[in-house]
Design a protein around this nucleic acid. Structure first.
Lengths: 350, 350
DNA sequence: GATTTCTTTGACAACGATGTCTAATCGTTA
DNA sequence: TAACGATTAGACATCGTTGTCAAAGAAATC
């Protein structure tokens, strides 16, 4: 220890205190303060207390971002989360599960909404990268051409949700969409239905395609030609779904059961059934659970996803990657679950 | 311009490029690159193009956090948002509206969930401050003793939602809770009810208290002694609400109408009514709108809040403060709205 | 043609922290 | 008692950027 005085004295203004303020007050060097703040070893108990006391007195708060500049691995202790929309309940659940897992490690989450806008997607990812996030979780709905992650960020820890990564080496966490849809089909078949309609989301959405595939395959296994299955697709909101359902139900040879591939489509279908007074006659199984599904008339049978489990698994993978896991990327499947509530157990008219 | 060479040449590694990389490639000084990136004036068109080209070639991405260290006002272009829970639909709407308004200005949002845990609140706020956010939006539910914002952060732009700030000078954006609840009471009174029960949330929640007050005042104005009003409080989830409602409805002198002060309480009440087969006899008005309210039997009449408008107004205030608005803090009221759907229009038995 | 002014540009020192390296101190042991 | 390793501490450079300032060159004025 050559001298006790630093090169210059900070103004010690009433502004937000820095490490130097704490150091001068405690009468130690700035690096020592750093050590105490980061709970590094090699500080005597006496100095530690001195520093802590000074820090408490000044109400000092370590500047995480400034530290990230020099910190090993340049960790910023923040991750970016790209969701269809933060206001969508499914996304909210995932967001929450992720937050819980990451906050335990002191990692904060930037969340942003995509809204199926590829332009927006570009700029959000850029914004995340510009903030030097330690990892990325991507939950896009639509198939957007290229996930243009710049070359130099290719090894950024990344986890995709509900979508297989293309062109990037990354883990993915998905629901067993095809299997879930097959379960729905099997359930309706088991209740005696043979005329089961499929109401589906936009075909450029990978999960929607998977669900359709699983559904049709199961129907096929029952010996029903898929050409005889009424299919209405590219329904992306309640209203278009409602119209499609009405059209189908008032047609010459209406289905006795309906499988709807997504929340909003289910809602539209429920509306149509109620309007036509057929809600107790035509069976319905929807993909995705929703609040109050059991309070409907009848309760709505669904294939429930588990956003919380998806979130937990995602967090686990992301943290593993951040911690240096070099295993080849994998896709993790979170099983869906059939929940019987009445609408799916309606039998066809004899 | 003394020399053209910088003190040292960067390794020009395949890693993430910095400004210096761009500068060397473009053959200009690093400050010039900074100017171009920040669209500062005083750069000739020729140099601008050169720099932009080099930046494009290297896929350079400005490091926002590093810049914040030196930038005037130390802007980090990020804000912290504290919500009851990111998975709660009401919070989600607010989050979304805020994001839309702030992302237009290049500001990213850290969202975190509080879960009524004062401990957690402390650490989240500390985490936000440690990341040097440019502003704070706080949406706590429960009354938590002290909003301990350290002295030196007192002038940090801050907006409270649904809660008057105490001990801090800050704007607030709130729903007209008392007025909304009064509207509910008036509506039920107008339909001939005199025995109207109040089912309420935890009494330590300010908005819950306001709603109760507004409700009782309106009842009082109708000449009904508030002592004769059945009141059940501190219901914080569906199950306790359901039990309270059942108790009330099976009592000797059951109410002919119910006002429930919050979403989950409304759900519990709906369940109770359905179980007792009274859903078409007993009137119900709930505070807070919810998905599929119109699909219930009967449709549920509600006092709807407007989380989107709350979010927009909040963003507006926060940005104004960030931009230096020094007006004395105000509380902004976003009006609620009565939506008739059937359950609130049931008349008492003759 | 000589000033003066304006425009364009880069060197340099920060910002607040941490990694590296070296120095002082303290026990321990030969 | 001297030598040594272990422990504790601080000086310093540095992370990637921006604010300040000064200098070079071009344009405008006399």
């Amino acid at each position: 220890m050559t001298t006790m005085s630093n090169r210059y004295q900070p103004p010690l203004s009433p502004n937000r205190p820095t490490m130097r303020h704490v150091a001068t007050l405690a009468g130690v060097g700035i690096k020592t303060v750093s050590r105490v703040m980061n709970e590094e070893a090699g500080v005597s108990e006496a100095t530690r207390t001195k520093v802590l006391e000074a820090s408490r007195q000044l109400n000092y708060q370590l500047d995480v971002t400034a530290g990230s500049l020099r910190r090993a691995g340049r960790r910023t202790l923040s991750v970016g989360l790209l969701l269809p929309s933060v206001s969508n309940p499914f996304s909210g659940e995932i967001n929450r599960a992720l937050e819980d897992a990451l906050s335990a490690r002191g990692i904060a989450v930037f969340a942003a909404s995509l809204d199926d806008d590829p332009q927006r997607e570009q700029s959000i990812i850029a914004a995340f990268l510009g903030r030097r996030v330690d990892g990325l979780v991507l939950t896009p709905i639509a198939k957007n051409q290229s996930y243009t992650i710049p070359e130099h960020s290719r090894d950024l820890p990344m986890v995709f949700i509900d979508r297989e990564p293309v062109g990037v080496d990354a883990d993915a966490v998905v629901t067993d969409n095809a299997i879930g849809a097959a379960k729905a089909a099997a359930h309706l078949l088991a209740h005696g239905h043979t005329k089961i309609a499929y109401l589906g989301d936009r075909t450029d959405i990978q999960t929607a395609r998977e669900r359709k595939r699983g559904f049709l395959e199961e129907i096929g296994r029952a010996g029903i030609p898929s050409s005889s299955v009424p299919i209405r697709e590219n329904l992306h909101d309640e209203e278009t779904a409602r119209q499609a359902a009405i059209e189908l139900l008032t047609s010459e040879n209406p289905p006795t059961a309906i499988f709807s591939s997504q929340n909003l489509v289910t809602f539209g279908t429920m509306r149509a059934l109620k309007e036509l007074g057929k809600n107790r006659e035509v069976a319905l199984v929807g993909f995705d659970d929703f609040t109050l599904a059991d309070m409907m008339d009848p309760g709505v049978t669904v294939i429930a996803q588990h956003p919380d489990r998806i979130g937990v698994r995602t967090a686990e993978r992301l943290l593993a990657r951040i911690d240096g896991d070099q295993e080849p990327p994998r896709t993790y499947v979170v099983p869906s679950e059939l929940i019987q509530r009445g609408s799916g157990e309606i039998r066809p008219p004899a």
